[in-house]
Computed example of a mutant assay.
Amino acid sequence: MKIHPLWEDYPSLKTELERTLDLMETSINLANKEVENAILEMIHSGGKLLRPAYLFLFSQFGKKKDTQKTIALAASIETLHTATLIHDDIVDEAATRRSLQTIQHKFGKDVAVYAGDYLFIVCFKLLAHHVSSLKSIQLNANSMEKILDGELGQMDDRYDYNISVESYIKNISGKTAELFSLSCFLGAFENNAAADLSSQAKDIGLNIGIAFQILDDILDYSQNETTIGKPVLKDVRQGIYSLPLICAMTSHRQELMPYLDKKIKMSDEDTQKIYDIVKQADGITKARILAEEYTQKALEQLSKLPETKENTRETLIKLTTQLLNRQA
């Protein structure tokens, strides 16, 4: 089983994440074994499993941890995340994800839609069998709605040269940060943590998720396809303007406009020119400043969490610092 090397420094988390992948695998059973194997290949393709990891860590603040239930919750969260990735790849017409062929590229869009839909079913079956109250299912449904709102907001803002930083933050708060927020909350809430701590966990997860997505968008302008496992500057080719470009447009709009015309198919030379202008305008540097603000906000919130016998607070601070300073 392939677990991301990030977890070598966190052996107890690594064990729980391996059990999470095992449960996800046993929960997936399709008559079409070729598609089933493609889903399983994606699940085992070396994703970081960050959302389950944060769920496990926040579960340690609970008054009484239920290990089996927590593993099921982690599996449901990662299954939901995988479903959204499959659907994202359909919309983006992406050929690769984590350096592997996407399901839509390998089998076509119809099969990919059904594969993603099937994983939504798996997610809610896991929740239905293991959560202690309807609140968690309601929150999961609410989170799915916010994820969709973020994606639709991003779609509405395509080719919008006047998109603001505020609109960008609102979109990524839904499409990315909401699932981090839900993971942290569920870990605490479903293991009977204090109400105020569960609420704090939700806010912390949101800030971590926002910082994570900003950094992901920065990497799109500073890494190559082999390093990050997906095509670089893919979003800008589709009219999706992420933070480095938004920052650059405040001072270099006229230089960028000829390359952002949606009527013209963007060439590799065009994307290189966009990259050069964004770098010249310090768009990447300005985006990093905002990522750092959200990172520091999350770290300050983490520092106020109570001590546990597992030194959870220190682990969370170490992991979050490591995650938000990553280069891939």
Rank of each mutant, 00 (worst) to 15 (best):
H4N: 15
P11R: 09
T15Y: 09
T15M: 11
T20R: 02
L21M: 07
D22Q: 12
L23A: 03
M24P: 05
T26V: 11
T26H: 07
N29L: 09
I39D: 02
M42L: 15
G46S: 04
K48H: 05
L50G: 01
L50F: 01
R51C: 00
L55R: 02
F56Q: 06
F56N: 04
S59A: 07
Q60Y: 09
K63Q: 14
K64L: 13
K65R: 13
Q68R: 11
K69P: 03
A72E: 09
E78K: 01
A83K: 04
H87A: 15
I90H: 01
A95R: 12
A95W: 10
R97N: 07
L100W: 09
L100S: 11
K106G: 06
F124S: 03
L127K: 06
H129C: 14
V131K: 03
S132W: 06
K135N: 14
K135A: 14
N140H: 14
A141W: 04
A141S: 11
A141T: 15
N142C: 08
I147Y: 04
E151W: 08
D157T: 07
D160W: 06
N162Y: 13
Y168N: 00
T176Q: 07
A177Q: 10
E178F: 05
L179A: 09
F180Q: 00
S181Y: 03
L182W: 03
C184L: 08
F185W: 13
L186K: 07
F189L: 11
A194S: 15
A195H: 05
L197V: 10
D203K: 15
I204Q: 05
G205F: 02
N207M: 02
A211D: 00
I214M: 03
P231N: 09
L233D: 01
K234W: 08
R237G: 00
I246L: 00
A248C: 03
R253H: 15
P258W: 01
Y259M: 01
Y259H: 05
D261L: 01
D270S: 15
Y275C: 15
D282I: 02
D282S: 12
I289E: 13
E292W: 06
T295S: 11
K297Q: 15
L302T: 05
E307M: 12
E310H: 12
N311Y: 11
I317H: 06
L324P: 11
